[in-house]
Each structure stands twice: as structure tokens, then as C-alpha cells.
Design a protein around this nucleic acid. Sequence first.
DNA 1: CACTCGTGGAG
DNA 2: TCTCCAAGAGT
Length: 352
Amino acid sequence: MRETACHIPDAGDLLDWYDRHARDLPWRVGPAARARGVAPDPYRVWLSEIMLQQTTVAAVRDYFHAFTTRWPTVEALAAAEDGDVMAAWAGLGYYARARNLLKCARVVSEDHGGRFPRDHATLLRLPGIGPYTAAAIAAIAFDDPQTVVDGNVERVMARVFDEHTPLPAAKPILTEHAARLTPEARPGDYAQAVMDLGATICTPRRPACGLCPWRTACAAWAAGTMAELPKKAPKARKPVRLGIAYLARRVDGAWLLERRPDKGLLGGMLGWPGSDWGAAPEEAPPIRAEWKTLSEEARHTFTHFHLRLTVKTALVPMDRQPGRGEFIEPPDFRPADLPTVMRKAFDLAQGG
DNA sequence: CACTCGTGGAG
DNA sequence: TCTCCAAGAGT
């Protein structure tokens, strides 16, 4: 192979690299096993892909293990209680994924006989499955030559083709590049290979071009522009919002909690009753009590704003009824079932 | 198309 | 401390 950048990147070169360097991941059937005819479990492929949406492999590992241990099949998951699934997802973020996960499991279970559809169009209609995930399931679980385009693939394509159009406008162009490179042979391995390449070699910062199987075909490498690609539209600064959380503990040890509405931030999750989050939150105590304000506030950053949460605590007698929420006593209440921001408030109240 | 929707780790 | 960002989807 010549050390020039005048040829098209070859899927075979990438697959050769993947055969030697594929990461060992809990949800993955590696290239060697695949070659022996081992087929991936579509349920595990689907579950991993949902969990991996905008989420790192390191963060997903334990959740994937917990879910597949507790709910080994899509039928088992479909039969789970909503609250149990939301609690199991707590801490992983983007909670709409968990609600859609359960919806999807029930649709697959009831309308598809417990088997995931194999084709992209049908997969795309399922809750929580968009263009990327539909292609990933079709390719990885069913070896259908679909083109997967995630953040890794966007970055790899932007560099290989030295595409300077900023995202998201560049997405259709990058998708077209990716589609042309997708092979008919071993599409499942190939899909994972491009993503592995983006995750381990063609990284956002300091790409390891010296180890890259596509280096000699990479236009950005030839031009020296790989570090500045892909271009992205500048992001808005995050504003600060203020809020108040009320942590009421009954004398028997029960805590006053509230199930948040399905729509919106932390939808479907358990949380502390509180004010709206905005510029000037208003007092909204959920029960009559002597509220004490903690000296330290809970700080948390969401996707598009910073939150500074004032934490108020109170000890209330057995016979007092709350205006909002309901008392839950251990062991039915576990702090680990809360989304992180709510758990931070709890930790402060515990004297953390 | 632009916005919403979490979290933790890396630099 | 602050920014970026990670196997995106829904509205």
C-alpha cells in the first residue's frame, strides 16, 4: 500500500484491523465468535444500543449487567413494573430512554411475538429507536448491510473526506460518505469496527493517526486538518437556574417523595417535592412543618443549564398528611433509585 | 430545524 | 472551575 491519500478507504482494511483490535464488550459477539457462527442476541444488542445513546461505555457497563441479569429477555422486561425499570435506570440519565425502553419491550412482546423485527423500517417505528439505532440493530443483530451513523462515524467520515462543513448541516453529506463505504460482507462487524475506530483511534482529541488502518486514505491526514474536524456550531452558554427541594422525614424514617410526570426533565423518576426551577423560585412546601434550610446547596449541571438547589429539611409526626407526594419507608425507598440531582440533595440532608 | 433531555470523566 | 463530549431520539 502506498503512503498517499489518493485512494478510497477500504472496508476490508478496517475489518482486518477490527479482527485484531476489537474491544471486548459485554454486549458484543466478537469477530472470532461471529466467524464461528455465533449470532448476537437481538435483545442484548437493542438494550446496549439504547443505553449507549449519548452515554459512555464505562457508564453503561454495570447497568447493562444489572438489566440483563434481572430481565434476561425482552418478555421479562416487558412484564416488569414501570417503577422498577425507572429505579434500575436511575443515575444513567436521559430518562425518556427508560420509558421508551419499556414501551418498546411491550410492543415487541405483544405485537411481534417477543422477536425484534429485522428490517430498518419496522425497527424505526418502535419507541426510542431512531435512524442510528435501527441501523445498528439491523446491522449488528441481523447482519443487514445498513449504514450506521453515530458521532464516531460522523467524525471518522469528516476526517477521511476532509469535510469542513459544520455539523449538524454536514450530517447528510457524511451519511452519504458512510453509505458508500458500507460493505455487503460482514456488515455487523463493519458497523462496530467504524465505531471502535472512532472511539479508540480517531478520537475527538489527539487522534492516534499513527495506528489508523485508514491513515493512507485519510484526506484530513494528508491535509493535516484532522484535529480541527469535525467542525461544529458553537454552543450556547448554560444559564443558572435556582430551585428549592423539600426533604421531609417522618418520625418512623419514611421520606416524602413524589413521582415526576412522564413528560419533561427527569420524567417518570422519583424525586423530592419542590419549587419550579427558574430565576426566582417560590416557596412550595409539600407539608406543614418547621423547615430548616441547609447551609450548602446542591449543585448540578444538566444538558442546558446549571442548577443550584436549596435544600430544606423537616421532621414530621406520623399523623400529618402531605399536600403533595407520599411517604415511602425503607427498604421501599432506596437513595440509589433517585436521579443523581435528587440523590445529591439527599446526601446533603444526611450530612454529607 | 432548533430545542429538550443527564451524567461523569477527561483535559 | 470550565468546557467538551459519549454507540441520539422526540417534539
